[in-house]
Each structure stands twice: as C-alpha cells, then as structure tokens.
Nucleic acid binder design. Structure first.
Lengths: 220, 220, 220, 220
DNA sequence: TATGAATGAGCCTTCATTCAT
DNA sequence: TATGAATGAAGGCTCATTCAT
C-alpha cells in the first residue's frame, strides 16, 4: 500500500522494541509500579528518547493495549472465516481468547488499563485512544457477526438481541478470565484453594455454559 | 448480643461517617485520586483524626469494600432462605447483586480495589483484609449453596461441578456488570452507543443466558 | 524539714512511677523513638495526665536526666567523705561512675540529652533545666574538690589547674564510657571486634592512665 | 590514576557543592532540624535533584561525615610519616584533631551522627556506611600505630595494650572536645563560666595528661 | 534525533500538644 | 484531677515531565 521511508520503518521498529521493553518491566514490577526510568533503561534508550516515541506514560500503556488488541483481533478475524456453525465460531473465539491471554497475560492487564483510562475521560480524542477504541469495536463486531451467523444457521437461539448478547459474552468472558487469574496469583483468596480448576477448565466450563444457554433446542 | 459502651458506639458511628465521606469524595474524584486530605476535609475532621480511625489509605479503602460486601451478603443470605427452586435462587441473587450495584455503584469499584490489594500481597494478615476475604468467601458460598440446591431439586444440570460453576457465575457476573457500567459512564466506548441496553436489560439477558445454560432439560 | 501534704506526696510518687515507665519504654524503643502515647500507656495513665505531670516531652526527658544525676551525685558525695588521698578519691569516683552507668545505662543517654537540650538553648530558665544544671555543677564540684585535696596531700601534681583538670576528666570519662557502649551494641563498628575489652577493662585502663598522668612523682 | 569523564567530574563537583550547602544550613539550624527543602534551596537545586545525588536524608548526613573523616585521616596519615618518638606522634595527632575540629566544627557533629546511625543499625551494608566505617578504622589504626612506635622507641609505657589504649585515647579525646564545645556554645552551662579555658587550653591540658600518663619513666 | 540532569507538585504519614468532658 | 479524642504542622520521598545540549 503506502511505502514507508527507511526512517519511518526504523521508527516503527524502535517503537515496537520500546513496547517490548515496557512489557518486560511490567512483568516483574506490575503495571502501575513500572516507572518511566525503568522502562527507558530496559529499552536501552534515554528517558528523553522514550518521550519522543510516547508523549506520556499513559500513551505508552495505551500503545501496549493497542498492540494487544490488534494481535487478538487478527486471530478472531481468522476464526470468522472458518466454515462452521455460528455457535462453534463463538466457541472457537472463546478458546482463541483464552489461549491469547495464556500466552501473553500482560495484555489482559493492558486491556483493563485502556478501559480505565477511557472511563476517566483522559486522553479522549487522541489517535492512540481512537485506535484502541476501534480495536474494541472490531472485536465486538466479530462476536456479533458470529452470533448473527449462528442465528441464521439455526445453531443459536433467536430470542437474544445479537448485539446485546455480544456485550454480555464479551463482558462475562473478561470476568471469568479475571477470576482464573486470581487463582494463578501467589496471593489469591483462600476460597479458590478449595476448588480444583485452572484457566483452561474454568473457561471450558464457561464456554459450555454459554453454548447450552444459547443453543437452539427447537426442531425447525 | 454484645453490648457496646457509649464510647464504642460513638466510635463506630464516626467510623461510618468517615466512610460515608470517603465514598462521597470518590464519587467526584475517582477512587484512586481521592486524597487523605480531601477525605478528612469532607468528613469535617483533622487529617490526624482520620489516621486515628484508619491506619492507612489502603485500610480506609478496604473498609469501604468491607462495608459494601457485608451489606451485599446480608441481602444474598436472605435470598437463600426463600422457598424456591435453586435456579430461581440464582436468578434472584443475580438481580439482588444488580440492584445493590445500581444503588451504590461505588462499592463495585471498592470490591475491585480489594482484589487488587490482595493480588499485590499488601496488607496480608491484617484484620480488615481478613474480614474482606471472609465476606468474599461467604458470597461464594451463597452461590454454591444455591447451585447445590438446584442440582438436588432438579432445576439445575448436574453436569457442572457446583464450586467451579460458582466461580464462573461470580466472575462472569462481575464482568457483565462492569460492561454495563462502561455504558453508563460519560466517556464510554462508541460501540456501546449503537446498542440499546442498560444495566437492567444487560443483566436480565445475562441471567436468562445463565438460566438456559444451567437448566435441566431432561424429563425425570 | 518541710512537710508535704498527702496530696503532694502522692503526686511525687506518681511522678516517679511515670519516670520509671518512661525509662522502661526507652529501653526497648530507644530514647528518641519513644512516643508520649507509649509512655502514657506504659505508665497506665491517660496521655492528658502525663501532660499534667510533665509540661512537654522534653521536660519528661529532662526529669529522667535530673533523677539520674541526683542519684549519681549522692554516690559521688559519699566518696568525698572517705579518708583517702585525693588521687584515690578520683579513682573511686571513676569506678562509682562506671558502676552507676553499668547498672542504669539509660541514664547515660539521658545525661547526653540534657546537654543536647542545653546546647539548643531550649527550655532555658525552666526549673527542671536549672535543677539539671545544678546537678552538673555539683558533680563537677566533687571532682574539683577531690583534685584540690590531692594537690594538697601531695598525691596529685600541682601543675594542673584543678578546675580545668576537672573538666578534662569529666569530659574524657564520658567519652571513654561512650566508646565502651559502642562495643556493647549489636551494631558496633568492626574495629572494636578486634580488640578484647569491655566496659570494666576499658574504664580501668582509663583510670590507670589518669592516675599515672596526675601522680606527683617528685620527692618533696 | 583513574580518569573521570567530564560528566563524572561535574557530578562529583556538584555533589560536593551540595554537601557544602548542607553544612551551611546545619550551621544555623542544627544538624537534625535542617530539612531537605532547606538544603535543596541552599544548594540552589530542586528537591528532586537533591534526591538524585543522595538517596535519603540519612545518606546525605553520612556523606558529610564521610568527607570529614576522610579529610581528617589525610592529616593524621601525614603525621605518622614524621620522624618523631611515638609519644610525640600521639601529641601531634591530638593537636591535628583539635585544629581540624576548630576549623570545621560541624564535622564533629557529623562524626557523632555516623555513630548514632551505626548504633541504630540503620543503613547497614550501604556503600556510604562502609566508607564511614572504613575511615573510622583507619583513624583508629593511625593511633594504634603511633602507640606501637612509642612502645618500641621507649617513649611510651609497655604496660598498656596498644589497641585498648587506642580506644581509650580516641574516646577520651572526643569527650574532651565535646566538653570544650559546650563552653563555646551560646547556651553553655554556668559552671563552665567560672573556669578560664578554651578549646586550645583544654586539649593542651588533656594531651599533657595523656603524655604524663603514658610516658615511660624507667631508665633503660 | 537522542540524551539524562533537573524539576517540583503532590502524597502519605507521624506525633507532640490541646481541651472539652 | 484524669482522660483520650482531635488536631495540623511538618517532613521525607516519588516520579512523570521538560529542556538545554
């Protein structure tokens, strides 16, 4: 499509390396305890340079979220191309989400950060914010499309509004993922010790619950 | 039961007034941007007095969460006493949660704060922290009990492990509530504008989804 | 002499109990980390009551110092009554000081506190301050008297000015005691580990040094 | 020896300027009443910059002590190179110490602060702390060496253990210096008014006392 | 473009002292 | 006389952001 000059290409690469470094720092220090100094050092650049690439700490965090949701959307988009009944698409999307989070759990935190920022009304109308929001809309759209396909092929009940159901599934998925993460943490709640589950089994159960709940039981 | 002296009663009342003030400040400033100075001023007490009642900012935040979950548990506990099939108990609990959050949305944020603190491992072994955890366990127990009742009375499938299903429902509920809040906020995502829903309808849909998913379809 | 009413006697007793408690708290917390709250609690009185007996934290500290130097002076005064050559009186006073500090090391810190306060010019002209200063003058006087006796009975060189020598001995003694305390502490300097000494041996050496230095060698 | 880059040299210079400023503030406010704000203002830098050079208030204090003891050791070390009997070396060291303190009395307070910190066990194992301790050991070593020389050349009695005697001299010297300072202060004890002495005469007297006490009287 | 020294607003927390009861 | 709840000044420290080189 558009051709980037060498300078521009180098800039994009460096930007990505900074995000890599930022993710690395957050893995050990936690999302909000990571300082710009540490990130700059980890990226092996000066702090001033860091600010050349990201206008603020928030912008850097959002860039992480943006990258994460972009990568996730790539995978969700491919699921939608499969020749499967709608309900199976939803199921596949669920496991796609699960695997993505399992491999890069930090993005999960980053997504939450994006929503936090949006809620606070900060950085409205900035390009990065709009990109993030665009990705969120895209993800929602994939889910809604799969639901619509399912309602048309008869695999999913028509009693739900597809958009509303999309929001429900999206929200509920995040909640279940969050719960699973709590257990994985060193300082989780005692109650979770009594229950034998992990990320995989919890999400599987959740997807099975969804499947049963959405399934069209009527003979047509 | 136990009789508190006048001093003790006054102390409890004042403590509650401080929590009220803290909640009020957070409504305008947001949970983490509220400062101890502002809270003290809102409570019309000196900053030193504030520290007399709450050893740290975190302890104050946790006290808010503790109060919230205590109030919620009171309501959940009463639901469990109703003579209803298990699946209806779950449904009622869902709406109880919904209404509680609608009336006191700040507690929702406070719950999340508690989990955040627990995850970070701060303040482990403090009384307030253990109270909060106790409440969380209690809430989970109410859900699991309702599920067990439902499995016995035949209103809920037996294919799920009740405890694991409890975790799923608990997590998913929080996720859906969170989604609904995003919409209610002034700076919500554009995608949510296209969809006609509110807290009520979204949770209703979610509960209906749960109901269908858990319902025992077999003739016995 | 003067007769104290019952009220006055009780007040003196209580004052002493508070000083006991304060000393006890300082033993564990250290002189400057002891708070008025802890001291009041240890004395089993209210904080307000504490302020009825001592106008300020500094006044309390000075009262400790005052008691300490009063007790020490009592002992020094008795030494002066002994029928001994002056140089032996000095020696005896040195060991008296040593034993007093060994039995009640906290007074040593209290003495230093008094000098600290005096240096800062705080609380000048208060009764307690003047009492403390009076005790210090008294202690100095005992030393000077012993020196004068020694110079008269020929046991001590006359080449020194007795008052100046008194100041030297007084200051040097405190410095040596301080050094010995450093060794007794858990976190003392490594250099002190290489040397085999304790409070007793160090002070003995010091007194022997003094004795030799002051001794009159000339045949008269 | 080692070559510092321009940046490194500038940093060292600035660090020294900050220490100068800190010393200046302490001259008027006293050691512990000097605040980081005041010191930063006196150094004409921001508070953040101050923390860039010194990690904590304690670290700054220790840096002052470190500089002081380094400067003093330089002078003590040179004394040891002189071709003089041991007893004269000790005497010269005494006057070296005296003059050093007279010219930079604040270092005297700083030395005491170092011992205070060491006693409390704070900041153990930090580089600055170890430097300070190293300097203290070095100073002690100079004294002990001079004593050993004196015992070998016959100018000092062999009846003392040189190390123990070193500790005694070191401690006693500090005590006498301290006493002399009390007199110089605006709010000194009245008793000192009656005595005609100053830093110089007091220390001279003390050194004469030491000399007599240590001198070898035996004809060899 | 790259740097990193400098900044300073802002926060939490402590604790001696007061005073109404 | 006794109390202890209330106070608020004061201080140390962090860290995102800027800017001169």
């Amino acid at each position: 499509m558009k051709k980037l000059s060498r300078k521009e290409r180098e800039r994009v690469i460096k930007r990505d390396l900074i995000i890599d470094a930022a993710l690395h720092v957050m893995q050990s220090k936690g999302f909000e305890h990571a300082t710009m100094d540490e990130i700059a050092e980890a990226a092996e650049i000066g702090k001033g340079t860091l600010y050349l690439y990201f206008k603020s700490k928030t912008a850097l965090y959002l860039a992480i979220s943006e990258r994460g949701s972009r990568l996730l959307n790539d995978q969700l988009g491919k699921v939608l191309l499969l020749e499967l009944p709608g309900i199976s698409l939803i199921e596949k999307m669920g496991f796609t989400y699960l695997n993505f989070i399992r491999e890069s759990p930090l993005y999960f935190t980053a997504f939450n950060y994006f929503e936090h920022i949006m809620n606070e009304g900060k950085m409205a109308n900035t390009p990065i914010m709009e990109q993030c929001e665009g990705h969120a809309i895209e993800a929602m759209t994939y889910i809604v499309r799969a639901l619509q396909i399912g309602m048309q092929d008869g695999s999913i009940k028509k009693s739900f509004d597809p958009k509303e159901l999309g929001v429900i599934i999206w929200g509920a998925s995040k909640g279940v993922m969050h719960m699973a993460f709590l257990k994985n943490n060193a300082n989780h709640m005692k109650i979770l010790d009594d229950i034998d589950f992990d990320l995989q089994s919890l999400v599987s159960g959740f997807i099975e619950l969804l499947r049963s709940g959405m399934k069209n039981d009527l003979k047509s």
